[in-house]
Simulated assay, not measured.
Amino acid sequence: MTLRSVSRPGTAVTSEGARDITRSLPEEVPVALVFDGSTQAVMMATPSDVADFALGFALSEEIVTDLAQVADFETVEHDRGIEARLWLRGGASAQLLERQRRSMGPTGCGLCGIDSLDAALRPLPRLPLGPVRLTRAEVASATEALRAHQPLHDQTRAVHAAGFLLPGNGIVLAREDVGRHNALDKLIGAMARGGVDASKGAIVLTSRVSVDMVQKAVLAKCPILIAVSAPTELAMRTADEARLTVAAFARAGGFDLYSAPERITDGASDVA
């Protein structure tokens, strides 16, 4: 079984001198996402929650629209990486033949292998404006709440996380990975597998907000995206069109609210 982290000896050098140390470093391996025998993408990822990753990728990239379209799944470990093999049912399998997406995605790359501008900037559905509401306090504390669900980060200080915040309940699910896009795909896959309704809460990220992160959140039908860092302007234009609420720079008890502010309230959160 591939380890998520590996201890490595080294030397810490400071103004006071040098000393021997041992650090836990996060492992990353090539994960081939194989659909009906054809490799659609090879992403560098943390070798944990691979099923969540593969199924979340399939959903967020619109290879499938429902897990019922996946007929079978298996992971196969090789000396140099992991294959996540999915077999699709008839309709989804036929659609796959029309969109051959192959990529070698380095860590942090979310649109690798997209071979047309139309595919990169795909149209998104518009999210309904109700009824999910979060309080300002819940948004302001969201990224700090996510910290309690990041054991691999605590061990290595080198991975991202994505969590799901349920109004009135805090972070109820989280996933980690060396890649921020991978962490979000893992979360989406875990939610789908666990029957967690993304439309009832908010996705919380330890990263910036790029357009592909907005696309993944909207396609998961999640109405609110909270991030510790900044959004891009393209991400915000896309969020505006999809009516996705984006709260960025959520840290130190505050946040910047850029789009669909109606979902953030001064009073009690909507826990219905």
Score class of each variant (00 low, 15 high):
L3Q: 15
S5F: 12
S7G: 01
S7E: 12
G10C: 00
V13R: 14
G17I: 00
R19E: 14
T22K: 08
P26H: 05
E28Q: 14
E28R: 13
L33T: 01
D36F: 01
D36S: 02
G37W: 04
M44W: 12
A45T: 11
D49K: 13
A54F: 02
F57W: 15
S60Q: 10
S60Y: 05
E62I: 00
V64T: 09
T65W: 04
D66T: 11
D66I: 05
D66R: 08
A68W: 03
Q69T: 07
T75H: 06
V76F: 06
H78Y: 05
R80A: 14
A84G: 08
L86K: 05
W87H: 14
W87S: 15
S93C: 04
A94V: 14
G105R: 13
L111H: 11
I114W: 08
D115L: 12
L117S: 12
L117Y: 11
D118T: 10
P123R: 07
L124S: 03
P125E: 11
P125F: 01
P125D: 09
R126H: 09
R126N: 05
L127N: 10
R133V: 01
A142L: 01
R147T: 10
L152Y: 06
H153D: 10
D154Q: 12
D154R: 12
T156Y: 02
T156K: 02
V159P: 01
A162S: 12
L165H: 13
L166M: 13
P167D: 01
I171F: 00
A174Y: 04
D177F: 04
I188T: 10
G189Q: 04
M191V: 09
A192Y: 02
R193A: 15
G195C: 03
S199R: 11
G201V: 01
I203V: 15
I203R: 02
V204Y: 07
L205N: 03
S207R: 08
S207T: 11
R208A: 14
V211R: 11
V218H: 04
V228C: 07
A239S: 05
L244W: 05
F249A: 10
F255P: 09
D256S: 14
S259K: 09
P261C: 01
E262P: 04
R263C: 01
T265H: 00
T265V: 15
D266K: 10
G267N: 02
A268H: 06
